Amino acid sequence: MKRVKKKLFSDFIAQKGLKSTRQRDTILEFFLASDRHMSIEELYLKVRAKHPNIGYATVYRTLKLFAEAGLAREIQFGDGQTRYEHVNEGEHHDHLVCTRCGTIVEFENPVIEKLQDEVALSHGFLIETHKMELYGLCPKCRK
């Protein structure tokens, strides 16, 4: 899967007339290796720990390119920070967000998806895309 995403990104930047750089490749490696919803700052700190020559602006611009290429999705959880998550073709999930510690849990529920489709249909609405975010306290913070 990583190889496919690397090829997709390589094709995308070539199509845009941009150069393939070692820094972009490194940032992509770190992004693909993570299973978290990462902010620019979090990814920058991870990358910088092993590659101190890569700057914040480079990580910022590269993440924007990932989103433009369809490899990443920008998401906001109401805390003023943009986070990025992997985009996998044909996959959809929703989020539970802890308002105290910031934990983010992904979940899938076919019953919820079916209900959303039924509600849309009953209103004559065609859903093109959607997102569901539920905010509250995770089990740790509830203690």
Rank of each mutant, 00 (worst) to 15 (best):
L8R: 12
S20Q: 09
V111G: 10
Q116V: 11
K2W: 15
K114A: 08
L43W: 03
G55S: 13
C141G: 07
L121I: 12
I13E: 09
M1H: 09
L18K: 12
R142G: 15
T62F: 00
R22F: 10
L115A: 03
G136F: 07
L32C: 13
D117K: 15
K16M: 13
L121M: 15
T26N: 06
I127C: 01
L43N: 05
G17W: 06
T62E: 04
R3W: 05
D94Y: 10
K6Y: 07
Y56H: 13
A120Y: 00
I40C: 01
E108M: 00
K5V: 02
K19E: 15
R61L: 15
E133I: 11
M38V: 09
C138E: 02
K46D: 13
N53E: 15
P110Y: 12
A72R: 01
K5D: 04
G17Q: 07
K46Q: 14
V4W: 09
G80Y: 05
I104Y: 11
G55E: 11
I75G: 03
R100E: 11
V4I: 11
P52E: 09
E42V: 00
D25K: 07
G70D: 07
T99I: 06
K64G: 03
R83T: 05
P52K: 09
A67H: 04
F125M: 05
A67K: 01
N53T: 14
H92M: 03
V97T: 14
L115P: 02
F12S: 07
C98D: 08
K2F: 14
P52H: 10
A33P: 00
L8Q: 14
E85G: 02
E113V: 13
K143V: 14
F30W: 10
G136E: 06
L126K: 08
R83H: 09
D117W: 10
I75V: 15
